[in-house]
Design a protein around this nucleic acid. Structure first.
Lengths: 196, 196
DNA sequence: CGCGACGTTGATTTGCCTCAACGATTGTGG
DNA sequence: CCACAATCGTTGAGGCAAATCAACGTCGCG
């Protein structure tokens, strides 16, 4: 059994929903490991999102491209994060989003049918995935509040504090897109921030 | 049995998670009806959020107040919407948010203990509340994308289209706060939007 | 009736974007 | 492993978007 699956199990156990060894086996039998190259996509616009993706190692960005061709980063993910286009995954409709590896990565994938059967066989899994999305919801809500209440500088400083690992992995152009500003302006802000 | 509880049942049945009459009874026995006056709070900063609130009728705003005393609307709710500070509700920590009635309203409330026991007695309820938060997550993610990719005018027009009922109930100052702009600027945008 | 919240407008200032340029860094193919 | 290409970071000039502040009329509510 690959070590990477143990990482998922350890992470899930932190949710305080204890799993029996049978349940852990069941889970392991329903997930698969994948190596992803830099710049490889695990979801592209127009495709249906088929998997819930758990990042073992590496980094991903989820983004949208508008009619003018500009990219807007909706979410980043690093080790122990889940990435999925929830709407496309459950509705089976074509996604409007991309999920792309920022660096070489390893992920675990659970497909829709397996996840649904996990939910039906063992309600604990439904609880776990309820809690996963609740956690993501809380983070997103805080980001919305920041977007409408704070200056770009405040949001940038807050990003550095909240996601130090991401700040090291990502070029500033990507962070700028996440914050909703131009790379040039973010650069000008960095002058003020760094030397203080 | 009050009619208002039937509204909740009908709404939940639309989630495609069919409920038996026993389960419907169980649910009804775990919720209570409350009338809320205009400007009355069902959550205040510093309190722990004790209930999942389902709006039967009326309108609420959820907002944060910053150190300068400015209000920022995080979410609105009308009939058939759920409102709760998820983080405070599950963690039992003091909330940093307010939930206030914009007009006289009627709500159903489920408290934490009852909801947890519903989850344990009948996993269907866990599924229903997983789906509730997933739906809210999708909407929030779309709002984040709009905030970082669109102009204020685009966001305002989109708000009018997506929430026509809210546009009628709320003063423009409240909508401005939700969009993250000043009321004065929203007013100037309305000139362009209305006459076209 | 009178007060406070709301909507509107204008003048001015500030924040942020656009565009262009250039050096530095990183990635890649031969 | 090197050389070239592509991406990234930085800077400045200029322009537009949005905030701030102030003023004033209107409306709804106590």
């Amino acid at each position: 059994m690959p070590i990477s699956k143990e990482i998922l199990v350890n992470t899930l156990l932190k949710t305080k929903t204890s799993l029996t060894s049978d349940e852990i086996e069941l889970l392991k039998n329903n997930i698969s490991v994948r190596k992803i190259k830099r710049r490889q996509f695990i979801l592209q616009e127009g495709m249906v999102c088929q998997h819930y993706n758990f990042i073992i190692d590496g980094c991903f960005k989820m983004y949208s491209i508008d009619t003018r061709g500009s990219e807007y980063n909706i979410e980043f993910g690093i080790e122990r994060d889940w990435m999925v286009d929830i709407e496309s995954f459950y509705s089976k409709k074509a996604s409007s989003l991309f999920i792309e590896a920022v660096e070489p990565s390893t992920i675990l994938q659970i497909n829709r049918e397996n996840l649904m059967s996990l939910f039906n066989i063992c309600p604990k899994f439904e609880r776990i995935f309820r809690m996963i999305i609740e956690d993501k919801f809380v983070l997103l809500q805080k980001r919305v509040l920041q977007n409408i209440s704070s200056t770009v500088e405040e949001r940038y400083v807050s990003f550095l504090k909240q996601y130090p690992a991401l700040s090291r992995k990502l070029p500033n152009t990507q962070i700028a897109s996440y914050l909703g500003v131009t790379p040039e302006f973010l650069c000008k802000i960095r002058r003020n921030v760094v030397y203080r």
